[in-house]
Amino acid sequence: MSDAPRIAFLAAATEVAQTARDRLVAMYGEAQPGEAHFIVALGGDGMMLETQHRFLGRNAQIYGMNRGSVGFLMNEYREEDLPARLAAAQAAQLHPLRMRAHSMDGKTHASLAVNEVSLLRQTRQTAKLRILVDGKERLPELICDGIIVATPAGSTAYNLSAHGPIVPLDANLLPLTPISAFRPRRWRGALLPSTARVVFEVLEAEKRPVSATADYTEVRDVRRVEVREDRSITMTMLFDPDRNLSERIISEQFTV
């Protein structure tokens, strides 16, 4: 048993996830997250995002098992042979987006996103946004419900539901996807290099208030939002060989 990996188990608040955690702790013991070789997250994709946020900057080895409703980022839940599964798991290394949102009250809010940064209108009025990429104006005015900048892993989440492109993990691209664009009507978004620094300026911010959200951290009444990939931070997700994340992202493009 001395060679057995130290595993920390974290579970969503649901009964099914908590029950799974109790069973796995009884089978494999439990280590504190700071002392564990692996962290096993039990729940859905939301639990994986929460766990990644909790350990951002530590490059923890995080392995998810699906005990929730959505499990694109999770492995199949099985209790047997967990140490062997962890040893055989393949790593997907990701980088988060860093958001700096400047609000109307003069404050600056910084946050990180594993999936996406989104700007959304707060009222019945559509948002008006000016878009700059690496300091160059690319769109002087976008009238829309909102806009998304996604990571490759997040390209299959909210970005996909807004009809944005799915991006392979190794493509070094960030999808920029409008939400219900009204003007210009034919603009469907862009694919940006992962090095791009994207700035959104909110036009008529008092009349047309906009919020900015990095995953689940929301800032209301923003006037300017800056987004870039933060390559100083690496996140590691572990997947069973038959659930390799790169392959799943490619396969998702052929799902009908």
Rank of each mutant, 00 (worst) to 15 (best):
E50K: 15
M47P: 04
Q61D: 04
F9P: 03
R78Q: 00
E50Q: 15
G71V: 01
A8Y: 11
R78K: 13
F55K: 12
R58V: 09
H53T: 10
M47A: 09
D45H: 09
Q18P: 00
H95E: 09
L82I: 04
A26E: 13
G57I: 07
A20G: 14
D81C: 12
M74A: 09
R67G: 04
P96K: 07
T14M: 09
N75V: 00
G71P: 07
E50M: 10
L73Q: 10
A91I: 06
V16Q: 11
T19W: 06
H95Y: 02
E50G: 15
A88Y: 04
Q61W: 06
A11K: 14
N66W: 00
P33D: 01
L56I: 14
E79V: 02
E50I: 04
L73N: 06
E15T: 12
V16C: 05
Y63F: 15
A26N: 12
H37L: 13
S111L: 05
R67Y: 15
R100H: 05
A84H: 04
A113H: 07
R98S: 05
G34Q: 15
D45K: 08
A26I: 08
A91T: 13
H53D: 01
M65G: 07
M99E: 09
L73E: 11
S111W: 04
D45Q: 02
G64C: 03
R85Q: 14
A101I: 01
G44D: 00
L97C: 02
L112Y: 05
G43C: 08
A88R: 14
R54V: 05
Y77C: 09
A113P: 01
H37P: 02
G57M: 09
M48S: 05
G64V: 01
V114D: 04
L56H: 03
L86W: 01
H102P: 07
D45A: 06
H53Y: 10
M27P: 02
K107T: 15
H53I: 10
R23V: 13
R23E: 09
R100S: 11
A8L: 14
A36N: 00
A92R: 06
E15A: 11
P33C: 13
V114E: 00
R54S: 00
L82D: 14
